[in-house]
Design a protein around this nucleic acid. Structure first.
Lengths: 242, 242
DNA sequence: GCAACATGTATTTTCGAAAATTTGCATTTT
DNA sequence: AAAATGCAAATTTTCGAAAATACATGTTGC
């Protein structure tokens, strides 16, 4: 990583996705400058990029804020993700070769290992789990042949990741679903090139996750619908989506 | 429009889409600063945003360039557009009310008027035509109920617009297709809520356009495949996609 | 007491120059 | 002659301060 702008971009992006910077939070240049040890220029540039990606919002002359979360936005994202990834998965199953299959097997294996290892609320372990989870889902669609789709899928993944992470950070993992089983079943269907079944399982996986997020949110929220608070910390700022 | 950054963003975006800034062209800060009458900061910020949208490319420590065009990229974009807009159109036909229908009728009418008016290669008329064309296509899907989809459709429109504009700028419109008839037929099927038919006509419309661009490019190009030159002007810089 | 207004402060936005890096070119070396 | 090296110019990147704008607070007028 060469330029400061890139460092700023990576750092801000990670801090937003992981919830260090909370949804709706004002991002004051002076504070960021002190926090990340750099001047305004690289920060603004990074924030602009993130704005185009939907992770920050710029209100003219009153600065940047972290993009807020809401249940309706989540469902919008999830539904779009289902549409795109269903197609991408189908294409991958048509075009994918040995390397593609190998990628799925290996990322699933790595994910499983980390699942079994991941016990409590150890942050480091959670980030590693997230990373491997991401790798597995990308491996599934990686042979779709469309750079544009892959790029979009990557962004949609990040967007939904923002909703899952607050739950993961809770110490109680309340494993009512066996998520790892879902992953394995998806991989099995995909590798067997059972197109319909694989897509159906992937869609169900996403919908179950979304439902679980929705329920968790309603349980951990006292305000009216469509708003999401950050669980950790004592700051009690309620964020609404634009 | 309040801030300089916004002005820079709009201006650069328009100049890239319309081909004033040519695909692959180096964007030197000093030149841009003189051209657009502002300092580096707002320009860099605008270019960063455009980079996230895929209209510019940033090579670390060697500046920004205009994103290149290629036939394979075009097909990738068109296919994704077909996937998204088919779904969005279906949803719109399910949810759309009177306002939505009115929007389609009025934008189609405005488009038709400009089509008949638009004679030669009058740039002003072409930009107006483009604007109304855009409005019509957005009107079709505007009732899909998904802000995310609409945002994505907007971007995909711009991306394909970059491919159509060089052709429009040629004085000879070589109207082998009756494009306006295609628009009308789409609108008719949509308003009649004939879902299958409407989607089929929209898809055909996009595929015909893509084919026509591909043929035009091969005719106006002497190099090997996948590269596109800008037609106007004497500069003979060949641009490849990353 | 309350609203409109003015004033000072905090913050964002923009500029112009300094620092860091690449690029082009001439010179040397093999 | 070709490749490597070193230097100067051009260019990007970054900083720190100036300008512009928003925000908070207190004041005046009614």
């Amino acid at each position: 990583m060469t330029t400061l702008t890139e460092k700023a971009y990576e750092a801000l992006r990670q801090d937003i996705v992981r919830g260090t910077l909370k949804p709706g939070q004002q991002l004051r240049m002076a504070e960021l400058s002190a926090q990340y040890q750099m001047g305004f220029s690289p920060l603004r540039e990074a924030l602009s990029r993130l704005q185009a990606e939907g992770l920050t919002v710029l209100a003219p002359l009153r600065g940047f804020t972290v993009a807020t979360l809401s249940i309706s936005e989540m469902w919008d994202t999830v539904n779009l993700r289902i549409l795109i990834e269903s197609e991408a998965l189908k294409l991958s199953m048509q075009h994918g070769g040995d390397d593609w299959e190998a990628g799925i097997v290996s990322t699933l294996h790595a994910l499983t290992l980390q699942y079994e290892r991941h016990s409590g609320a150890d942050k480091l372990a959670i980030w590693e789990l997230e990373s491997r989870h991401h790798a597995f889902h990308m491996a599934l669609v990686s042979a779709c042949g469309s750079p544009r789709m892959l790029n979009l899928i990557e962004r949609l993944y990040v967007d939904t990741e923002r909703y899952r992470i607050p739950i993961l950070l809770q110490s109680v993992p309340h494993r009512v679903r066996n998520i790892q089983k879902e992953h394995t079943e998806i991989a099995d269907a995909v590798l067997a090139r059972k197109s319909e079944l694989a897509i159906q399982k992937l869609v169900a996986h996403y919908q179950l996750t979304a439902c679980s997020i929705e329920k968790w949110t309603q349980a951990n929220t006292n305000n009216s619908d469509g708003k999401i608070e950050q669980p950790s910390g004592g700051t009690r700022e309620v964020k609404t989506l634009a």
